[in-house]
Amino acid sequence: MFLLTKLTLLMNKITLIISGLILLFFSGGMAQDGMKSSLKNHQTNGGLKFESESVNRSANGTYSEIIQLFNLTGKAQAIQFRILINKASDDYDALIFKDIEKGSDLKDPGWLLDFNVIKDSSKNSNAEEVFVLLYNSNQNSGLQPGDYFDLVKVNYKTINLPDTKSIKKSSMKIVKAEASTFDGFPLLIQSTKDEIKINIEGKKK
């Protein structure tokens, strides 16, 4: 009876934590208010990064870009971040977001992925902001401190370019990256190298 009661309390705690993470995901914050000021301007050489800082892609194609995580300093039970697509002032609006999927570092079925896409209100624009939430549904079963080379994959398409000689630049940028331990303590994962520039070349006839 005691064991059953203890198990029930544990499951209630896990459910409460997951519910709180989902609520924070849609409200836009994970760290507690008292800690936000100390974390706001902190960036590290580690954190979330795209595998490459710049790539060349062909027009009218389908591609994936890998997001990696370096120098994780604690055991991360949950991770959230946003991806800005075609949002830079000099972007050509050449990328069309498809979806995001777990990489090989998150093969544990306890890791769950959710994302929410906010499209730019401008007519005929492909600019988007993607809210991403990763969390482990098992008790204290997060990512161990260290480096992760295949965390998630961002899948997208490139638009068709009528001028086969043209090269157009677009980008993806990771912002508001935050992580949390099982007990709710924040971990710093915002990187100074948080953007990938994608150069789109028209296909030759």
Score class of each variant (00 low, 15 high):
G20R: 03
G20T: 02
L84I: 03
D108G: 04
T158Y: 01
F70I: 06
D150F: 09
K153I: 05
A76T: 02
Q139R: 08
F185E: 12
I167Q: 12
G103C: 09
D147T: 04
I159T: 12
T62R: 14
E51T: 13
L161Q: 15
L48D: 15
Y63L: 10
T5W: 15
A177N: 09
S137G: 01
L69P: 00
T73L: 12
E65Q: 14
A177G: 13
I200D: 00
T164F: 14
K6Y: 09
S19L: 11
I14H: 02
L23Q: 05
N116E: 06
V130R: 07
N12P: 02
K193N: 11
L16Q: 09
N116G: 00
A94V: 07
F182Y: 03
Q68R: 11
Q43Y: 15
L3F: 07
F131R: 08
I18T: 13
K169V: 06
S104G: 11
I17M: 09
Y148M: 00
A127V: 02
F115R: 09
N71A: 10
L39R: 15
A31I: 06
G184S: 05
E65R: 04
Q190I: 02
M30N: 11
I100Q: 04
S58M: 15
K119S: 10
L143H: 07
T62G: 14
I167F: 09
I17D: 10
L48G: 14
V152I: 15
E101L: 09
N155T: 07
N116I: 00
L69H: 01
A78K: 08
D105T: 04
G142N: 03
N60C: 05
L112H: 05
F2Y: 12
K98C: 07
Y148W: 00
F50P: 03
T181K: 12
Q144T: 13
S171R: 01
N155D: 03
L133S: 02
I100A: 06
L133A: 00
L112P: 04
S52T: 10
V132H: 00
E195K: 14
N124I: 00
L133C: 01
S38R: 10
Y156N: 03
R57N: 06
L21G: 03
S27L: 05
R82V: 12
K205N: 15
K168C: 04
R57W: 06
E129D: 02
L48K: 15
I67P: 14
E128T: 10
N116S: 04
S64C: 11
L48I: 15
F182D: 00
D108R: 06
L16F: 11
D183K: 13
Y92S: 11
A88R: 14
E65F: 01
